[in-house]
Amino acid sequence: MEANNIQLFSIFGIFIVMLFIAGLYCILMTRNMMRALIGLEILTKAVTVLLILAGYVTGNMAFAQSIVITLIIIEVVVIAITAGVILSIYRHTNSLDRSTIRDLKG
């Protein structure tokens, strides 16, 4: 049981790391704010799978599920607020380009 679970964890782990790389690359490389938000969502997906997996491997599914449900609710609120901020920026600048943010630097 235990050896099986460890193997399961390492296989899932590789894919979770790939998802993390995809999300981070998206946030760091894009200049479109909406795409940065999509990258954030991909990162959250990776974390969700990691938490569920940790619960499954330790036989603690109920605990992991209750944590993940809380996480999903929080995720929705954060995404809604961020989308609101992006829309308000769009109303000012008429663009989703993040490079305009650079004029704050100095």
Binding site: G55, Y56, M61, Q65, V68, I69, I72, V76
Partner: peptide, 14 residues
């Protein structure tokens, strides 16, 4: 992964 309740939340919310 035997987590049906969280899966329902993921489906409907995310």
């Amino acid at each position: 992964l035997a987590s049906p309740l969280a899966a329902v939340f993921e489906l409907s919310v995310c």
